[in-house]
Structures are given as C-alpha cells and as structure tokens.
Nucleic acid binder design. Structure first.
Length: 708
DNA sequence: GACCTGCTGCGGGGTG
C-alpha cells in the first residue's frame, strides 16, 4: 500500500490479535487506521488457513459505512486472494445467493441483515459460519446501550451455535471514555476470555473553542405566536455564522432537523444577497439517499462547502477535511460533543475548531426565574467544561437490563429459525446462555404465556412452541428485522425526484410552504394511499415539522450546570454576550438563594425545587409529585410545584417513609409502550422493565432526603 | 427538550 510505516495502534493490534486469545477493543479517532489495525492481523490468519466458510464478519451500523469499508478491504484483500462480500438491504439478491452457495473470506453486514439470515437462510447457517473466527464491530459505541446493541448481542450468541470454535470479538470506537469495563461486560458477560484495550494517545491538538450567545425577544404569549415565528428573531446569529463559515469546508450541527433546514436556508439567502454561489448544503435522516449522497460527494471535493446537519454526520462516513465545526444550541451529551468536535482538524498540524451558538430569551426582573438562569447557556458551558477536563469524562453506556421488546423479537425469530422449539430450549439459548442473562425463568414464562394469549405463538400437542398465523404475519413482514421503532413516513416528491420523508403524525396541508433539502417548496397534493406528498418549487418558506422525541441527559451534566452557576470565576471561551448572560444568571441565582437550599418559593402556593439531576431521576420525581397531587411542571433542572415549601417537604417525606416501590411507581406512567414490540407484552411485565430501566427511584429518594 | 439506524420477495418491464 506504499505506507512508510504502521501506526502504533496497528502494531499493537497485530500483537494483541495474533499473539493472544483475547477479545480486543481499539479506541482511536476516526481516520486513525482502526479498520486496518483490526484487519491486517485477521487477514493474515485468514490467508494462511483458508476454509470454505466465512472466516471474519464485520458488523457496521450504516449501509454507507459498509460501502466505504468494502472498498478499502477489497484493496487490502486483492493481493491476498481473499474474497470480500457485503450484505445489506441494497445488495442484490444474486450476490447474496452466490455467497450462500460458496461461502468464503470476509463478510460485511448490518445487525438487521444477520437477523434476516437467521429467518430466511437458516438451513445455510452451518456451512456459512462453521469456520467463523472473528467478529469486528465498527462504531461499537453507537450500538452499546440501546436496543440495537441488545439485538446484535443476542444475534452473536445465537450465531455461536453454528460456529465450530468460538469466535473472538474486536470492537472499534472513537469515544470509549472511561467505560472500558462496560464494554468488556457487553462483549464477554461470562468473562471466559480476556478483553484487551488498545487506545491511541491523545495527539495534543491545538483547540480553538468559542461560545457565542444571542438574545432573542420572547414570543408574546398574548398574540399566541406560532413556533415558526421564533425562527424569525434569531437576529445577528445567521450573519455571524455566515462570516465564520463561508469560504471554507465546515460542518454545522443542529439539534433538530427543522433547524438544519432553517439555518441552511438563512445562510444560502445571504449568499444570494451577496451575489455569491450558494455554498451551504444539508444532511439529515429525512432526506432521500440521493440527496445525502450528493452532499457527501460535494464535501469530498475541494470547493468551499459547509453542510448543516443533524447527527447523521457524527459517525464515520468519510466527508473529507473539515476546517471547523459549528453547533446550534447546546448538544445533549459530552459524547456527542466529542464526536462532533472530532470531525475537524484531522489533517496533521491543523487545530480543531468549534463554535457553539446559543439562543437565549431576552429577560427582565419580571421574567420567570428559570428563564433568568439562561439554562441553555449553562448547559453549553457545563458540556464544554466536561469536554475540556482532563482526564475527560464522557457518559458511560447504560446497559439495559430488561429489554422485553427485543427479547420478544428474539423469541419469535428463534421460532422462525428452528421451525418450532421447546420453551426450555429457547430460554437456554436466549437467556441462560444468550444475550438476556438477567431474565428470570418465571418472567420468561409469563412473556411466553402473553404471546400465547395474543395468538402470536401456540403450543403443539408434543409441547413444542410454534408461530401462530398472526405470529407468522409479524415475522413475515420486512419491518420485523429491526429492533428499533421507526415512524410511518410519507415520501416528498417534486416532479420525478424524491426529496425526503415526513412523518405521518405531522403532515403539512395542501398549499403549505415547506423547507426540505435546503430548498423551498409548496405542497401541491397529498396521496394517503401511496403515502406521497407532491411539492413544487415556491418562494415561500416554513420549517418542516418532525416528531419531538426527547432523550436522556446524564446527572453529571446537570450537576456541572449547577457548579458553573454557583461559581464566580469567569469562563475564558465566552463572547461578550455570553459573559454578560452568565453574569446575569449568577446574579439571579445569588438573589434567589439557590445556593442556600434547593427550594425557592415563588409565591405562597408555588415553589421551584431545583433538582439538578438526570432525566431518569427527574422522571421519577415528576411521577411522585403527580401521585402526591402537587401538579408538577418539569423545568428539567427544577420541578415547579403548586404548594408551599412546608407542604412539599411534609408530603415528600411521608412518601419516602411509606416504603415506596419502583414497580408501583412505574404503573403510574401514562404511556407504557416505549419500544417496538412492547405491544406484544403484558403491562404487568412492562412495568417491571420500566421500573428498572426508565425510572430511577433510588436517586429520587436520595434527593427527597436532602430537602426533608 | 433530539437525533440516528434497518429489512424481503415478488411481479412487471426493459435490456442484451
């Protein structure tokens, strides 16, 4: 390959893989040569001991990533005469059939396609995977701690049945943080193999970092101004963004797809006003594949281009050398801030550049206390402080203990794989020796009974369980293969071009204006049958609507926000507005005694309880306050309660003394169906899972103790 | 208060 030398992580990986029997985790920035680090030793071994079977399997979270890696691995493998195959939804059936008939070499695949193999190609599995020695999991941080990771882990355990000798796992990631043990636990719950860690040294890159703040006037409650109106009052922010980013190659991340569209349009309007070519592109998950690929290709060229994007460009898709990264509004985790920052300054000697843009409401003495604390700015500073701290802290993955939705999917899949099976055998494969180790046998039986009651599965006279006709329908539909829930969407089409998709729950009306793919449209017609929205070009503009879908914020981030608020030292990377707003927030905090106690009385019958805690604990507190009939309002870092301080303290203490239990509390949740297959599970079981994974009662009780 | 991801088999029509 004409490389002058190997990188240190590549040399280390060769030793770890060839000279030991351990599983391996490789942690290094994107484009640091992780794929080669894993595959150089693996391919050497495959080359020396060829067998008529797939010998190494690469699992990637994105089709685009698999396509990228396919090219690179083909280059490496050609000379060694090792076959490389890819398998995902866009690969044609002929190629798939050929692999099934003559399995060999390296297979690149998605978790969902492994699921489809289990169901549709089960008779071929022994010959295809008999000689499997290595499973390489790319971007492993994107899979651990969510249902997709639980799914993949279960599939890998199921696959072991077809493998002659147990395979080793090599995980690749750019942000492991200090959570090595969580990853090791995920990979080897039985600790039957060592897991060794190989991580690239911090290169000590120069970092240019700035937070810009803007005040926008609060939408007037009396004129009931729509959410769209607030977009119009962002003031000097788009102009500054244009000055900071035009003429170079950059990425600007926004938290919402509607913001991506809005800011791309604002920035391109400025190009037009200045008679410059439009240089701002868009990238997010509701755009058509063609438009996303166009943006990815444009970013690889030399021309100055800035892409406004959602988290789609956080993962390893190759988008060339990015000069600086922008971020509109504070992100939600240190993890994602690290990933985003890491997209800039990849060239040797280039600094990393990050600009955060924070929108804060204009406030005065009369404004609500929570508004006067400028919580978005505080969150941005808190995340920045955690990002800049050494050693750096990032959120550890949360290993979900009772994913009943994905277990249900795996039960149905096992029945399809085997054509019928004893309950005990399923329990053995999926739970006792599978991915769902913490599942007690009695809960598993109850889950099966629930599926029987719903006529999804049935028991034959000899005792074997099989799929009932309704179960066959669930498994037979192509949407079965993924463990995660996806919304129903309408395609947006202009002429013969598919632009993107919009969720059925928030469709526009005919004649409405719409921004999508960085262009302005008007809706011509909506076809409910075909699920199609026809649009044509039009000068009017309105941001598109997508579904809100809140995620979790870690408690450490909220604690850091409190620390920043109660400190008095200046923060070095703020612009003048941000400094002024931080000082105002600190003054408001001092004036309202937030430092002294966590409860602030707003009126005789209204208090704010500052909890500064993570989403799971806050959720539990909200539910408890509901149960206590305190009419709570969630301000994220605080609870607003309709009572006096004495009443709140008394009621919460009494609750804490009543030996509360998490399951009873979970029963109070208004919506219990969170994940894809929850509709096949009895509520009595779901609340047990929710009590473990969705609410943090212990954290809530601990906070209650601090106020009583 | 948010973002992202994935999947099949078949019929119809065009091309070599």
């Amino acid at each position: 390959m004409k490389w002058p030398s190997l990188r240190p992580i590549q040399e280390e990986a060769i030793h770890a893989i060839l000279k030991s029997n351990a599983d391996v985790l490789i942690s290094a920035a994107t484009a640091a040569g992780k794929t080669e680090a894993a595959f150089l030793p693996i391919l050497s071994e495959v080359h020396e001991n060829p067998t008529p079977s797939v010998q190494a399997m690469y699992v990637g979270p994105l089709k685009a990533l698999i396509n990228d890696q396919f090219g690179r691995l083909e280059d490496l493998c050609q000379r060694a005469e090792i076959d490389v195959h890819r398998w995902h939804g866009d690969v044609d059936a002929g190629k798939k059939n050929r692999l099934m008939e003559k399995p060999s070499g390296v297979l690149l695949i998605t978790p969902e396609s492994i699921e489809s193999l289990m169901i549709n190609r089960n008779t071929r599995l022994p010959s295809v995977f008999r000689g499997l020695k290595y499973v390489v999991i790319d971007e492993i941080h994107a899979l651990i701690g969510n249902v997709r990771g639980t799914h993949l882990r279960s599939l890998l355990f199921r696959l072991r049945r077809y493998v002659e000798h147990d395979f080793r796992i090599v995980g690749l990631s750019a942000t492991l943080g200090n959570a090595f043990s969580d990853y090791a636990e995920w990979m080897r719950p039985d600790r039957d193999r060592e897991v060794s860690l190989i991580s690239a040294k911090d290169e000590g890159k120069q970092l240019l970092y700035k937070i810009h703040a803007y005040t926008i006037s609060k939408p007037d409650a009396h004129t009931s101004c729509s959410a769209d109106e607030s977009y119009k009052s962002t003031g000097a922010m788009p102009q500054d963004m244009f000055r900071h980013f035009s003429g170079h190659k950059n990425l600007i991340f926004a938290n919402r797809k509607s913001d991506v569209e809005w800011f791309a349009d604002e920035l391109n309007s400025q190009c037009r006003a200045k008679n410059l070519p439009e240089e701002f592109l868009v990238h997010h998950g509701s755009l058509s594949k063609e438009i996303r690929e166009y943006t990815e290709q444009e970013m690889q060229k030399e021309r100055p281009r800035t892409t406004v994007c959602s988290s789609t460009l956080e993962l390893g898709i190759d988008i060339g050398n990015v000069r600086s990264v922008g971020q509109v509004d504070p992100p939600y985790s240190v993890n994602s801030l690290v990933q985003r920052l890491g997209r800039s300054g990849r060239k040797k000697g280039e600094p990393q550049r990050m600009r955060l843009y924070i929108r804060e409401e204009d406030v005065d003495e009369q404004s609500e206390l929570t508004d006067r604390l400028h919580l978005d700015l505080l969150q941005a500073i808190a995340l920045s402080e955690l990002l800049l701290s050494r050693p750096r802290w990032v959120e550890p993955p949360r290993l979900v203990s009772w994913d009943l939705s994905t277990l249900t999917q795996q039960i149905l899949s096992t029945l399809a794989e085997t054509g019928g099976c004893q309950a005990g055998v399923i329990f053995e494969r999926l739970c006792r020796r599978g991915g769902f180790r913490s599942m007690p046998p009695n809960v598993f039986s109850e889950l099966l009974r629930g599926l029987g009651k719903r006529q999804i599965i049935e028991q034959m006279s000899q005792g074997d369980l099989i799929l009932a006709p309704d179960g066959e329908k669930v498994v037979g539909h192509y949407s079965f293969y993924s463990a995660f829930q996806a919304p129903i969407e309408f395609n947006v089409i202009a002429g013969s071009e598919t632009i993107g998709r919009l969720p059925v729950e928030s469709l526009p009306q005919v004649n409405d204006h719409l921004l999508l793919a960085g262009r302005r449209w008007q809706v011509v017609a909506i076809d409910d049958e075909q699920k199609v929205i026809l649009v044509r070009s039009s000068p009017g503009k309105a941001p598109p609507r997508f579904l809100p879908n809140g995620g979790d914020i870690h408690e450490r981030v909220r604690q850091k926000m409190r620390e920043v608020l109660l400190a008095s030292s200046p923060v070095s990377y703020l612009d003048s507005t941000a400094s002024r707003l931080l000082q105002n927030a600190r003054n408001a905090a001092a004036f309202s005694d937030i430092a002294k106690g966590s409860i602030v009385a707003l009126s005789p019958n209204k208090i704010l309880w500052f909890t500064w805690t993570g989403t799971r604990t806050q959720r539990a507190l909200m539910l408890i306050a509901e149960v206590l009939k305190l009419r709570p309002v969630d301000h994220h870092v605080a609870l607003e309660l309709a009572c006096s301080q004495t009443e709140a303290t008394e009621k919460f203490s009494a609750y804490a003394k009543s030996t509360p239990n998490a399951i009873q509390l979970a029963e109070e949740l208004p919506f219990k169906h969170i994940n894809k297959f929850d509709y096949l599970v009895d509520d009595t079981l779901l609340v047990q899972g929710l009590a473990r994974d969705y609410l943090d009662l212990d954290g809530a009780l601990w906070l209650i103790e601090t106020i009583s």
